[in-house]
Nucleic acid binder design. Structure first.
Lengths: 199, 199, 199, 199
DNA sequence: GATGAATGAGCTTTCATTCAT
DNA sequence: TATGAATGAAAGCTCATTCAT
């Protein structure tokens, strides 16, 4: 964060291990409850080593978010490429599934993105970037939509995707069956909506 | 773990003040970053007084959530009563607005409900309770729907309502105009969806 | 402790209940860990009531010690009266048993007497008083002993009696059988010793 | 619960200083009244340093007990080696003196061992260990004694040794002269007893 | 660069005691 | 007199961060 602080050096093996450990610990405990010492220990490193590469705890979270969001960007880019050919139903299904899949393989992402206490600036970037990519995915299906309207639609879609994630591991669900039914409902909602909005 | 009941008038008053102060502080900083000392100070109480009525910091948050969720329950109950006569468009508008309004007047509620580190059990109760009330609101509009399906619909609606709140004070929005547009989009999505689902 | 403080009023029913509760709590937790609030609660009283009769926590312990040591005094007095007729073996047996019996029925006494943090002055009085009574018990068996020597013997006997108590509920004992054997050994030691010392 | 092992020289030194400071403070105030802050200050360390090596206050006491009891073990071992040649009188004298000497140079030991609130498990180990060593010391003097009997004798001897310590700094003694006389009496009791028991 | 010791502000919680009702 | 609310110093302990080796 500060200028004289050591930059995290991409490519340094230790950095990768530290980030992996951080992902683990953040996923388990959330940003606030995670401690830098524990992260270092999980990376079989020392606390001193961690601070050699990251100036603050917040910087660790930021780097992690950035690393993971790069993966998300890639996935969405792939969707943008392949998605032009899908019909609306498939589009809805894929969109709902995309974030669920992603967060399943990056469990720390959700906690870091939503948690108060987490670094704000990066989070906003990620959200905005995702929104832009959603616009890219949706655009081919509604060539006539103005840019402002398209962004509004993308924003709404983004919310549905987040809802899908929330539903997917909602501990308030009465049963797995009920959770699945709710998820299907959400998919249906998105499909109907897109059918109208993109026409 | 729950609040010790005050047995004197002075005690009741103090509890109210403490909860109000807690609402303030939790809203500002979130559960983890809020300190019991600050809450007591904001209530112009001593820290000892706080712990006279609440055994732990968590109990303070629980009591606050319970107090506020009682208000939410009331609002939703009112909607259930009045809502039978609304057409689908009004229903959608009201639902989207309901949670926005509520959280505007209870800013701490959102942070406490979503935050990791916050008391889990009460949160689940609140979510489940809200879902049940949504079922009550929706039922008159779709008498033929089975109970399981109705619950799935209610769950989806609940997510849209939460999305609306998120959108309403989304710091990632490019402009207030864009935020409003996205909100309108969400409302439209809900309307279209309900039209189909409740028919 | 302070002059203006309310004296504990003998005969007031509340005082008796409070002392009984204090005995219970002190026995369970020891002097330091016991809290005045818990004592009051155990007496089904309020903390205010407790401080109406006892100026400090220490005063409660003092009163309790005094009350119980009066009972001890009585028992030893009884022994002094009956003991002149006993032979040395019976004397040894009774002495060893006396403190064990007493502490069994006053479990808080031991913790209060030995615990650092407990009121010192009263404790010394109790010890000295007990020593004097032991001299009374022993004197008839050794009419020729000088007073100084008698006191030394009494002091040694007192230590053996305390040892007996310690042994009786020694958690370091390997088995109840071993504990009993050690106790018997102690009794034997006292017998042999008294045989010589009192002749 | 036990001490975290330091991995650097500086750490080892710090642990030593901390334990010495803890010995001082525990000796002065006892376990409960001693505070970790004061211990750290007495060691001219920060409170953080203390908790770097000891997870809890109890662990500090445990480590201290273990360190000191190692010394006690050594002394008793020396007695076991040299003691075979002593006559019973010398044996009694040495036994009575051993614990007095030891506790004189380790003043915190007594308070930690007897105090309720102190760590229990270690204390039991120490007591049992001492008992075993006493058996080693006594055995050569009574080759014909069965093991069970020997243990009972050792236990009784152990109690006398503790009594000697108690007497040695008994604030209830009327005078130093009286205290010395009582101590002599105790020594005599042990001598007579051992003469009989070990024959 | 790697390590782990050092730091200390600050956290939650306790509890003897006082005071208003 | 009885009650329980009020107080606040002080306790044990944590943790992000810095520094010496």
């Amino acid at each position: 964060m500060s200028a004289r602080a050591p930059r995290r050096q991409r490519g340094h093996a230790r950095v990768e291990v530290l980030l992996a450990a951080a992902a683990q610990v953040f996923a388990d405990k959330g940003y606030d409850a995670a401690t830098t010492t524990e992260i270092a220990a999980a990376a079989q490193s020392s606390i001193g080593s961690l601070y050699q590469f990251f100036p603050t705890k917040e910087a660790v979270a930021q780097a992690l978010i950035q690393q993971q969001s790069a993966d998300l960007t890639q996935r969405l880019a792939a969707m943008a490429e392949a998605g032009a050919g899908w019909d609306v139903e498939e589009l809805a299904r894929r969109l709902v599934g995309a974030l669920i899949d992603f967060r399943a393989s990056h469990p720390s992402f959700a906690r870091l993105i939503d948690t108060p206490g987490a670094p704000a600036a990066v989070v906003l970037d990620v959200r905005r970037g995702m929104r832009l990519q959603l616009m890219d995915i949706l655009a081919p299906h509604a060539p006539s939509l103005g840019k402002a309207r398209l962004m509004a639609v993308a924003t709404a879609v983004q919310q549905v995707m987040k809802s899908a994630v929330a539903l997917n591991d909602d501990p308030a669900a009465d049963s797995p069956t009920a959770a699945r039914a709710a998820l299907a409902e959400l998919r249906e909602m998105l499909r109907i909506y897109l059918q109208t909005a993109l026409s």
